[in-house]
C-alpha cells in the first residue's frame, strides 16, 4: 500500500515538474518576445497554452485520485494539498505568459514604444523568483522559499517605476498611448507572475511546516517560523 502511494507521489511530482518546465519556458519566451519584439516566440507561447491547461487538468485528476485511493495523512496529505495549490498557480502563470505574448505582438507593430529601461531588471528578477520557488519546492528548502518571498517587494518597486516611465512616454507623445497601454498591461502581468511565484514559495513553506503563511501580511512579507 505504502509502496503504491510512494510510486503515485513520485509520478505526481514528475508531472508537476514537467508542467513547471513548460511554464518556465513559456514565461521565458513571452519575455523574449516582449523585449526583442519577436512575434514568432509570442505565437509559440500562445499555441503552447493549451498543453499547459491540459496538463493542469491531468495533475488535478491525479491528486484527487491519490486522495480517494490512498487517503494519505500528515506529510503525504500536505504534499497533495501543496501540489494542488502550486498546480493552480502554475496554470495561472501560463495564462499570464500567454497574455504577455499577445501584448508583445501588439507592441511589435509600429509606432514602436521604446522598451522601458528597467524592464530587463524586472524580467530577470521575475524569472529568478519563479525558478527559485520551484527549486525550493523540489529541494523542500525553506530558506530559499523565504528569499523568494522577500524578492517580491523589489519586483513591485520595479513595477511602479516602469509604469511611471510608460506614463511619461505617453504624455510626451499621444500616438504612443495604445502601445503604452499594451506595455502597461504586459508589465502588470509580469508583476502578477512574480506574485504567483511568491504563492508557490508560500505553498512550499506550508508543505514543509504545515503552517499556512498565505494572507498573513506583515508589510508585504509573510512571517514564517
Amino acid at each position: 500500500m505504502a509502496k503504491h502511494l510512494q510510486r503515485d507521489l513520485d509520478s505526481l511530482q514528475r508531472d508537476m515538474l514537467a508542467l513547471a518546465g513548460l511554464v518556465e519556458a513559456a514565461v521565458h519566451k513571452a519575455i523574449l518576445a516582449l523585449q526583442e519584439r519577436d512575434i514568432n516566440h509570442a505565437r509559440e507561447v500562445i499555441d503552447g497554452d493549451g498543453q499547459i491547461d491540459n496538463e493542469e487538468n491531468h495533475i488535478d485528476e491525479e491528486c484527487l485520485k491519490i486522495l480517494a485511493l490512498h487517503q494519505p495523512v500528515a506529510v503525504d496529505l500536505r504534499l497533495i494539498a501543496a501540489a494542488m495549490l502550486i498546480n493552480v498557480d502554475l496554470e495561472r502563470i501560463g495564462d499570464l505568459a500567454e497574455e504577455i505574448a499577445e501584448r508583445a505582438i501588439h507592441l511589435a507593430q509600429p509606432p514602436l514604444l521604446p522598451i522601458p529601461r528597467k524592464l530587463q531588471n524586472m524580467t530577470d528578477l521575475t524569472t529568478m523568483m519563479l525558478r527559485q520557488s520551484l527549486d525550493a519546492y523540489v529541494n523542500l528548502n525553506k530558506a530559499q522559499a523565504q528569499t523568494v518571498m522577500r524578492m517580491d517587494d523589489e519586483v513591485d518597486r520595479y513595477n511602479e517605476e516602469i509604469i511611471e516611465e510608460i506614463v511619461e512616454e505617453m504624455k510626451s507623445s499621444p500616438t504612443l498611448i495604445e502601445a503604452g497601454l499594451s506595455m502597461f498591461s504586459a508589465v502588470r502581468h509580469l508583476e502578477r507572475i512574480a506574485d504567483h511565484a511568491t504563492n508557490i514559495a508560500e505553498d512550499v513553506i506550508y508543505l514543509i511546516d504545515g503552517e499556512i503563511v498565505r494572507h498573513r501580511d506583515n508589510g508585504g512579507k509573510a512571517d514564517a517560523h
Binding site: Q13, R14, A18, G21, L22, E24, A25, L134, V138, N139
Partner: peptide, 9 residues
C-alpha cells in the same frame, strides 16, 4: 531524480 534537477521539458 532527473526531473528534480532539470526542468527543460
Amino acid at each position: 531524480r532527473l526531473w528534480e534537477v532539470v526542468r527543460r521539458r
